[in-house]
Structures are given as C-alpha cells and as structure tokens.
C-alpha cells in the first residue's frame, strides 16, 4: 500500500518525469478477511467520488501552502492545448516558474514538446483511462516538487466529457474550444462548460474559412454557465494572446508579506 495516500495497486496509469531518470512507483497489495455469518445492512452513505475529492482537496492545500496557481486545461482532442502551452511558456519565459503535467493515454509526445521549451514537465499516461484524477496529480507532484509562487498547467486528456467529473485540486478550470469545432459544443457537452471559469476560443485566424459564430458559441456557453469568461486567440497568428497573458498574471496569487 502506498504510504502517502493509501492507494492500492490497481493504478493502470504511469507517470514519467521527462528529462530525468525514471523510477517505477510500485504499490503492494494488502488483503484482510475474516468470516462471520448472518445478513447485515450497512449504511454507507458515501459519495462515490469521495476518495478523489479528498485527494483533490489535499492537492489544493499543497498548492495554497506553496502559493502555486494550478490550472486544469480541458478540451476535446486537437483544440490546441499543447500549442497554447508551448506558445505561453516561450512568450512568458522567466516571468514565473512554470511547471506542466501532461495527460494522454499514450506516448510522451506532448511532454517532449513542453520539455523543448525548457519547462519542467511530467507525462501521465492514463493507459485506457479517459481522464486525469487527483491521485495521478498527487504522484506527479511528488516527483516534480514545484517551487513556491509557481504556475502549474495540468493538460488533461483530450476529452470534453469525462474530465469534467474529476476535481484535481486546481484553482481554475480552463476549457479550450477551437473554431474548427462546432459552435454548439457548449450545449452538446455542457458539463465541461458548466464547471469551467474561463473559455479560450482558439484558432480565430481560421474564422474566415469555417462556419463558426463567436456570438453563438458565447451565447450557448452562457446558457450553461452565465459567469464564464472568454478569451479569443490564435496560437498561430498570436492574435489575442496578450489577453490570455494578462489573465494569467492577474490570477497569480500575490505573496503576502508578514
């Protein structure tokens, strides 16, 4: 059993810290049984996501204590999460200590791209899993050891459905949609837009070529989440990126001097 979080050995995901030597994280298995007879009703009354939510709060406490801004980036595959991170990490280099946790089913391709920007990155491969959970983040952090006052980007598995249910302990959830997707995505996949605080509309340089209405996408998204903020940008042309950088800077917690 894992000494830190008590996890069992059923984890099918793996974590690799890119640019470092890798050590496997093994869990032993414990089983205890004794026997008795007769039927008993046990009132369990437990949230199914209880374990995940406890670990998420634990991560959140860690981030708060170290004054780390943790952002959970969610979207469908191909909306440009990794490109946005590459661009951001390059343009804002030196402004904050940045860290990235990459979530994909397979390969270290995304982590390799982030590593190339000179940023410390861990790749989580979820195997068959369709989302990151708080437990995976906890273990990725153990190897990463981010410094205080840092910004941590967690790039979730490209999936507009499943990651919505799993709190990772992030400060804010940022949903990214690109103009090559339909503008009705927010009502087709409402959970993700409901749980996010910022919506980045990416690839706006392609707007002249696709039937995508900025007004419509915002209208649909506000039906699900009236408080949602929007930033329109293009990682290719650079348009709108300054708005995203300003948003980031405003979110970084100010260190309190005693």
């Amino acid at each position: 059993m894992c000494a830190t979080c008590g996890c069992d050995s059923n984890a099918s995901s793996s974590i690799q810290h890119i640019g470092e030597h890798n050590h496997p994280h093994d869990h032993a298995h414990e089983h205890d049984h004794s026997h008795s007879h007769g039927k008993t009703i046990v009132a369990v009354e437990k949230d199914i996501l209880h374990e995940n939510n406890l670990l998420a709060q634990r991560n959140r406490g860690y981030f708060d204590a170290k004054n780390i801004l943790a952002l959970n980036l969610v979207s469908s595959p191909g909306s440009g999460k990794t490109s946005l991170l590459e661009r951001t990490l390059t343009d804002m280099k030196g402004e904050f200590p940045f860290y990235v946790i990459e979530g994909d089913q397979q390969t270290t391709r995304d982590a390799d791209r982030i590593h190339a920007t000179g940023t410390k990155v861990a790749q989580i491969n979820t195997g068959k899993g369709c989302h990151l959970d708080a437990h995976m983040i906890l273990h990725a952090l153990q190897g990463m050891k981010p410094v205080e006052n840092a910004v941590l980007f967690i790039e979730n598995v490209g999936n507009l459905v499943c990651p919505a249910m799993f709190d990772l302990g992030e400060k804010e959830r940022v949903v990214i949609i690109s103009v090559t997707e339909g503008d009705d995505k927010p009502i087709k996949y409402p959970d993700m837009f409901h749980t996010s605080t910022l919506c980045i509309i990416n690839k706006v340089d392609l707007l002249p070529y696709v039937p995508f209405s900025l007004d419509k996408v915002k209208e649909y998204a506000r039906q699900v989440n009236p408080a949602l903020e929007f930033i329109e940008l293009s990682c290719t042309s650079g348009e709108g990126l300054s708005g995203w950088y300003q948003w980031l800077k405003a979110k970084v917690p100010v260190t309190e001097t005693v």
Binding site: D8, N10, D32, H33, S34, H35, S36, T40, V42, V44, K46, I48, L49, H50, E51, N52, G129, C130, H131, D133, V161, C162, M165, F166
Partner: peptide, 24 residues
C-alpha cells in the same frame, strides 16, 4: 467512459465497507 472509473470507485467503497464488517 468515466463510468468505469465510477464503478471502480463503487467497488472500492464496497470492498472496504464489507471488509470492515468481516463480510464474505
């Protein structure tokens, strides 16, 4: 298919609760 994760969490809760009560 996050439903599989949900089912696994239910299994986990059920296994722990039944072990606490020595159930087979």
């Amino acid at each position: 298919m996050h439903e599989l994760s949900i089912v696994m969490s239910i299994l986990d809760i059920a296994e722990k609760e039944s072990a606490k009560n020595n159930a087979v």
